[in-house]
Amino acid sequence: MTNPLTKGLPPIHPGEILREDVLPALGRPKTEIARLLGISRQTLYDILNEQQPITAQMALRIGKMCGNGPNIWLNMQKRYDLRIAEAEIGDKLDAIPVLQAA
């Protein structure tokens, strides 16, 4: 079910949250963040540019570094992925009936 307050707004990739809110608040260079996370700079830039998803392993790394745990990052990615998928196949979903157990 779509939240009426966010209806019509594009989904937010967790990389956008990292790029716009988290990293500026941390005040560290991206190169250092990548090193602290144990990932390449390119991997970090791909996430920040919304070209790569937050995987379970990445959620563990970011959640540890930020102190907020992995679930928030995985949930953001899941919501993003579901909104994108729904936009792509929404009409086909409407044609699928809901079946009830006998």
Score class of each variant (00 low, 15 high):
67 G>H: 05
30 K>R: 13
26 L>N: 03
51 Q>G: 06
68 N>Q: 10
52 Q>S: 15
94 D>L: 06
65 M>D: 05
68 N>F: 10
56 A>N: 11
50 E>N: 11
31 T>R: 11
95 A>N: 13
81 D>K: 11
83 R>T: 08
99 L>Y: 07
27 G>M: 10
90 G>R: 04
77 Q>K: 09
24 P>W: 05
72 I>L: 14
6 T>W: 15
35 R>H: 14
10 P>M: 08
68 N>Y: 06
102 A>L: 15
99 L>N: 03
52 Q>P: 13
78 K>D: 11
9 L>G: 10
77 Q>A: 05
22 V>K: 02
58 M>R: 00
26 L>F: 00
14 P>I: 09
59 A>P: 07
18 L>W: 01
78 K>W: 06
46 D>N: 09
93 L>G: 08
36 L>E: 14
94 D>E: 05
62 I>R: 00
58 M>N: 03
53 P>D: 05
40 S>W: 02
70 P>M: 02
5 L>G: 04
30 K>N: 05
91 D>S: 12
93 L>T: 01
83 R>E: 07
61 R>H: 13
23 L>T: 06
9 L>M: 13
25 A>H: 01
43 T>M: 06
62 I>T: 07
68 N>K: 03
60 L>R: 02
61 R>M: 15
68 N>C: 06
21 D>R: 15
37 L>H: 10
25 A>G: 00
41 R>K: 15
74 L>N: 00
45 Y>A: 02
96 I>F: 08
85 A>R: 11
20 E>R: 09
47 I>Y: 05
28 R>G: 11
63 G>E: 02
84 I>A: 10
75 N>P: 07
10 P>L: 07
46 D>F: 07
52 Q>E: 14
35 R>V: 09
65 M>E: 04
65 M>Q: 10
11 P>M: 07
36 L>V: 11
86 E>C: 04
99 L>K: 10
72 I>K: 15
51 Q>T: 14
36 L>A: 14
69 G>M: 02
90 G>P: 06
70 P>K: 04
25 A>C: 02
35 R>F: 04
58 M>K: 00
17 I>C: 00
102 A>N: 15
3 N>S: 09
94 D>Y: 03
2 T>R: 15
22 V>W: 00
5 L>M: 11
91 D>T: 13
31 T>Q: 14
67 G>N: 05
30 K>G: 05
20 E>C: 14
102 A>P: 13
